[in-house]
Amino acid sequence: MTASTMNVDPSAIAMSNADAVGTGRVKIHSKDVKVFYGAKQALKGIYLDIFEHSVTALIGPSGCGKSTYLRCLNRMNDTIDICRVEGLIELDGEDIYGRTIDTVQLRARVGMVFQKPNPFPKSIYDNIAYGPRIHGIGARRDEMDVIVEKSLQRAGLWDEVRDRLKEPGTGLSGGQQQRLCIARAIAVSPEVILMDEPCSALDPIATAHIEELIDELRENYTIVIVTHNMQQAARVSQRTAFFHLGDMVEVNDTEEIFTNPKDERTQGYITGRYG
């Protein structure tokens, strides 16, 4: 991926970097990211920095490109034949679309939790153990047991399932399944966790559970979450980026964006005039 430096919009860079109040290390840096599905352009040049050990929320009306952007960060878009990505995305300063980067390695470092809980049709134990196993971690049984237990603990699921680790993961409730999927992602020890509307299929109680969990996870991981629920973004994130029609309109500290949006489109969306 070669970044096109011709059409750089200086204001966008300014917005993406200068406004950064929550000073942390930049974990992911994206510059002029464009995505095409066939002839249709889904992202029109995104500039966005994501800070380490913080939760960044991507909000915006449906079809605005926030999920598309998220799926660029661990190259999940590669699995779609007609999808083409341009621009620069760096993870710890390394171009993830560069030649030396391998998608398998990248996805091990940048985990993902999906909109609908998607446990494998295996036991709860095997669901968690699958990732470490393919990456050659925890080859010994006792090592793996530790990984499974810690992951489930960290996902807040351990107490509920400790006695039925051999039962299929598909037998859990929706909220439990989603926490299982988070545990599955954690078990690989990624640096970044991407969450694509992780609570959209869940009831309010399960949602509260997950939100709590996200807040705890922030300590150890860099989290990017796509949500259509603004309250959720306000509750869990430190920074929020507003996407609209394939553009990243505004990014700022969450508090700032919800109290004092600079762009009138952001304001319109937040106040519920459209979206």
Partner: peptide, 22 residues
């Protein structure tokens, strides 16, 4: 369902690992 494939790819499984194991 595609979501199962996505789940495996998201963990960093290769294509054949996804096919054989998921």
């Amino acid at each position: 369902p595609q979501s199962l494939r996505d789940g495996a790819y998201g963990l960093g499984a290769t294509k054949s690992e996804t096919i054989r194991q998921v």
